[in-house]
Write a protein that binds this DNA or RNA. Structure first.
Length: 870
RNA sequence: GGGCGUUUAGCUCAGUUGGCUAGAGCACUGCCCUUACAAGGCAGGGGUCGGCGGUUCGAGUCCGUCAACGCCCACCA
């Protein structure tokens, strides 16, 4: 795109030139307005000029009161570029541009979220590699040009290098998109969640959480993705409806009679630790305290009582396994049951014979060893059918199954040691404090606050931040290895803050040397990394340089707004709130603006799995960046918005209209006209109406309602071109005070419109601004009623004159004659006041209507036009 | 099962604290090459504001209820 953008290029306004050329009063640069203004190429032209002029550079000498700071969402660079990527960012940009013009110094950095699993997965697929932490580093490894098939194994360090290479490429693609779409970010203020500064900030914040007891490690059952082989957090869960089948299975009471349970996971009978029924369930009351034996394995199991057992579900008796689902974890913990787990980290049944099995049970188990759960399930169903313990045929059902949101196989629950940060789930006081933070935040739109509240109310565990992966910020601790060789997890060795960032798998704690790694009396490094949210929950601290630039941090933090999508309230917004609450004792921002969803043209939510992801570049190429921006800014705050090429085309038409109307408005004089020459009441009326528009647009922006600001500006602008420009045209082509008044009013009006549109249509407004003004429209002062006050008149003059003109047009249209057709007379009936208003605009009205005379009489308002018969 | 949001013209959407015959654009129809604009301009037709019931002098707007759609949450036996 933008290939021939410079075909009518003029001498650029170098930042150095204006001071040489500027005259004491106004600006005398010769205008160079193209005969055929075009939108083509404006994106590239102005992006590079803004960059070289530093138009959006942040001035850090400003005070906190003057600064407006934005906690920009760092896009996941390994994710797909889709229309949702531009939607929310453009809305934020419009607000940033408004703030900048309204007098704030805007802190608008950009980050890239590049660490974490999404990048690893993309690297695996892109290059056809897999990370094998056991392999040695290969210094001669070069990134493959084509994906290996089948995948080759590479060392951890080579793998991480590939992650860096690919994310650098991905970040360039994103930056290019942001530039084309016109985001006014300060490109000197960028960060990446894997970079040195972010790792340092992330580790420092973690160590402080650890020191204050807000972070801890614990050996416990966790939700586990068997493909990625990592623990995941509650916030990353999603339920999917999956088919399954209930198996009705007989356990044996002491007297040999069957006790039936129903389960969708018969393969876990071997890890069963108890059966459970509701304490008030009379059917089973006598069994509490006794034992039953499991089918095939013959393990004696207690029958226990717990409120969570639902009498209506299945037979009313459930088997408790370690662990089949999250309810099992609750029962296991609250009833103090033993652990009998058989599923390994790779998702397969362990090969070693479980110690609680012997005899026939061991023989049965040997058939399950090494299988995946779904394979073991079929095997168990066969075996149970053969032994007669399966009652009837399995019953097909659909039920919700927990998945990792990025995963393909159901989660398992596996016991392992993990790191957690407290979030209020296990501490009522902290939960109340976090709910209080949610109430404190100014939510835009306000109903979004409910989502936060529900999430915090529903938390059922602390925040699990450790991941058994590679491309991320390492957990910055080591552990002593006791003389007996066991690792002392309870006494982690921490680095000094000055040492950060560290990688405990390659660096050595103070007082040790490398030879002690993994040896009794020595140390081991924590092998895990932190989840990406553990770092991106610190974006205000990272972007504001909490770690290394307290002066800057004091000027931007707490930030003014956090713009983001509704889906990550539970993750990003909540986690950021937790971290700031712990570290700084404040809410990290004043306002949270939550954008809506992007729906595809059929009003379906876009998602990769559905395959309806729409990428922005084809739209930008077809209608231009500003048309896409116009569409994005038409989406109300927090409102789901469908991708609509039609809306974009309206935006394009608006931008073209601005070019053409500007060309007309600026065609009458070579220099700025003094607004004190505005004397005609129609002109003053127009400025009076504009004054109201300015007020409405400003109020809307103050409420973060960019869409409303655009709407009132746009409506007024079309009236301006349709009515005012037509009314004033003839007078403007003439000479004398009337013409001068028109010229000045046209310029003044245009100047106001360009500034009102600048947040939405940054390229075309800047282009027109450059025709006759110095500097950037984006650093021009936001229009105000005060600025217009000396030149305004009764807005009703223009309104009623336009209305009369409308009647004349309709008359001509009905008569199927040209708009240039002559009108003999217009008769206006109205109140004394209305008549006076029309008379104020009469001469312009007669020219525009081509009417030779206007008759007036008092009465109920009515207008009639009498065409000259031809 | 709970919560939030949406439902206004064929389509995409406005309608701020309840106030005169409900608005815009697209699409459709008619007219017009008028010296800013024909990838345009001007004008026109088109809606019992999801259903039902309330409050009110007055309801698209407030309350209740039902329905459809979307999203979020919920202990997978």
């Amino acid at each position: 795109m933008c290939a021939d953008g410079e075909r009518w290029l003029r001498i650029p306004l170098s930042p150095a030139l204006p001071s040489l050329l500027r005259q004491p009063h106004g600006n005398t640069l010769t205008r160079n307005i193209p005969d055929k203004p075009t939108l083509d190429g404006l994106e590239a032209k102005w992006d590079s000029r803004w960059e070289s002029a530093g138009t959006y550079r942040f001035d850090r000498t400003k005070t906190r009161e003057e600064i407006f700071s934005i906690d920009t969402p760092p896009p996941t660079v390994s994710g797909s570029l889709h229309m949702g990527s531009v939607f929310g960012y453009v809305q934020t940009d419009a607000h940033a541009r408004y703030r900048r013009m309204a007098g704030n110094e805007v802190f608008y950095p950009m980050g890239w979220d590049d660490n974490g699993l999404p990048t690893e997965r993309r690297v695996q697929n892109y290059y056809g590699v897999r990370c094998d932490a056991g392999l040695p580093f290969d210094p001669d490894f070069t990134p493959p040009t084509e994906a290996h098939d089948p995948p080759v194994s590479v060392s951890r360090r080579n793998f991480i290098d590939l992650c860096h290479v690919l994310t650098a490429e991905d970040e360039k693609v994103f930056e290019d998109l942001w530039r084309v779409i016109g985001l006014s970010v300060d490109w000197t203020q960028t960060y990446a969640t894997i970079d040195h500064h972010s790792r340092r900030t992330s580790q420092k914040a973690f160590l402080r959480n650890l020191e204050r007891g807000e972070a801890y490690s614990q050996e416990a059952p966790v939700l586990w993705d068997v493909d990625f082989q990592t623990a995941i957090a509650q916030a990353e869960l999603e339920d999917r409806e999956k088919g399954g089948s209930y198996h009705k299975i007989a356990f044996r009471r002491q007297d040999g009679s069957p006790l039936y349970i129903e389960t969708s996971r018969p393969e876990l009978i071997c890890s069963c630790v108890a059966l459970v029924a509701h304490p008030d369930d009379d059917r089973y009351g006598e069994l509490f305290g006794s034992t039953v034996s499991s089918p095939l394995f013959g393990v004696e199991l207690p029958v226990v009582a717990h409120e969570l057992a639902e009498p209506e579900k299945g037979t009313g008796v459930a088997m408790i396994c370690t662990f089949g689902d999250t309810t099992d974890v609750i029962w296991w913990r609250e009833l103090d049951l033993p652990t009998r787990s058989v599923i390994q980290h790779n998702g397969r049944f362990q090969s070693e014979m479980p110690e609680w099995l012997d005899g026939d049970g061991a023989t049965v188990y040997s058939e399950l060893a090494g299988l995946f759960p779904n394979q073991a399930r079929r095997k168990m169903a066969e075996l149970l059918a053969e032994s007669g313990d399966l009652d009837g045929e399995p019953r097909q059902i659909m039920h919700p199954v927990k998945f990792y949101e990025k995963g393909d196989r159901p989660l398992e629950i596996i016991t392992s040691r993990q790191w957690y940060i407290r979030n209020g789930a296990r501490d009522d006081d902290l939960r109340k404090e976090m709910l209080g933070r949610g109430e404190e935040l100014n939510w835009v739109p306000d109903f979004m606050g409910v989502r936060y509240q529900h999430w915090v109310d529903g938390l059922n565990g602390d925040w699990l931040i450790s991941r058994q992966r590679f491309f991320g910020v390492p957990i910055p601790v080591w552990y002593p290895v006791k003389a007996a060789g066991e690792v002392d997890y309870d006494n982690p060795i921490v680095p000094a803050e000055a040492q950060l960032p560290i990688d405990p798998s390659s660096e050595v704690p103070a007082g040790y040397d490398e030879s002690g790694r993994g040896r009794p009396g020595g140390f081991v490094g924590d092998p895990d990394i932190m989840d990406t949210w553990a770092t991106s929950s610190l974006t205000p601290q990272i972007a504001g340089h909490w770690d290394d630039d307290p002066d800057l941090f004091g000027r931007v933090f707490p930030m003014d707004i956090r713009p983001q999508g509704p889906d990550i309230i539970r993750t990003w917004l909540f986690a950021t709130t937790v971290r700031a609450h712990f570290e700084h004792g404040v809410l990290p921002w004043h306002t949270g603006t939550i954008n809506g969803w992007i729906l595809d043209p059929d009003r379906k939510k876009m998602s990769k799995s559905v395959g309806n992801v729409v990428t922005p570049m084809p739209f930008i190429e077809e209608v231009g960046a500003e048309a896409v921006r116009y569409w994005a800014c038409n989406g109300r705050p927090g409102t789901d918005t469908a991708i609509d090429l039609g809306v974009m085309k309206i935006g394009r038409r608006l931008a073209i209209k601005i070019l053409n109307a500007s060309r007309f408005a600026l065609s009458f004089s070579e220099s700025d006209v003094d607004p004190s020459t505005i004397t005609e009441s129609l002109d003053k009326s127009m400025l009076g109406e504009l004054s109201e528009v300015v007020e409405q647009a400003t109020n809307a922006f103050e409420r973060y309602d960019y869409a409303r600001a655009l709407e009132v500006t746009e409506r007024s602008f079309w009236n301006w071109t349709d009515d005012y420009l037509e009314l004033v045209k003839t007078r403007a082509y003439g000479e004398g005070p009337g013409a001068e008044s028109a010229h000045a009013a046209l310029q003044f009006g245009l100047s106001v419109f360009l500034r009102l549109f600048a947040p939405f249509l940054p390229f075309v407004t800047e282009e027109v601004w450059s025709w006759w003004k110095e500097g950037s429209v984006h650093r021009a002062v936001w229009p105000s009623a005060a600025e217009l006050a000396d030149y305004t008149g009764d807005a009703d003059v223009l309104a009623i004159t336009s209305q009369v003109l409308g009647v004349v047009r309709r008359t001509k249209s009905d008569a199927k004659v040209s708009m240039r057709a002559e009108v003999d007379r217009i008769s206006v009936i109205g109140s004394e006041h209305q008549i006076r208003l029309v008379k104020d605009g009469e001469s312009d009205l007669r020219e525009a209507a081509r009417a030779s005379a206007i008759d007036y009489s008092e009465g109920e308002f009515a207008v009639e036009a009498e065409l000259t018969s031809s």
